[in-house]
Design a protein around this nucleic acid. Sequence first.
DNA 1: GCCAACGTTGGC
DNA 2: GCCAACGTTGGC
Length: 154
Amino acid sequence: MQYWLFKSEPDTFSIDDLAKRPAQTESWDGVRNYQARNFMRDEIKLGDKVFFYHSSCKAPAIVGLAEVVKESHPDLTQFDEKSKYYDPKATKDNPRWFLVDVKFVEKFANQLTLKMMKADARYSEMPLVKKGSRLSIMPIPNKIAKLILEDIKD
DNA sequence: GCCAACGTTGGC
DNA sequence: GCCAACGTTGGC
């Protein structure tokens, strides 16, 4: 079982929005970055855990946990001409963009802010604090995942 | 709103 | 296949 981190702008889709979805589940659509797509298409497996991260907001932070409930399938927004994620080069026979479905597990009582992680040497191996890390989906080393879970419970 | 750091596109 | 121009991300 692998841990991941998914970024989302809380104004667009927050951890609370996920908790309110039918079955508390959402297809992680709209990812249009090849590296992130490859993770969803090839590597993210059923039962993997996902740290939910709020980005582009006042206090960027890890705010909760989700779980993968469906593995790779095509992102339908790529075929929808009205969607802002429409991709004219994608066809149903040859989809370009894939996603996974995630289900709400919990919202943490405390937030683990980017600031806290940046100030803490134990998080040096956290991809999020590394320079120029703009990926919206990233694998989290097991050691770091344990750290996060310990720190968040305090 | 600024801007650094990427990623993508397209002409050559 | 190079690389300049452009677009996007996301912290600050």
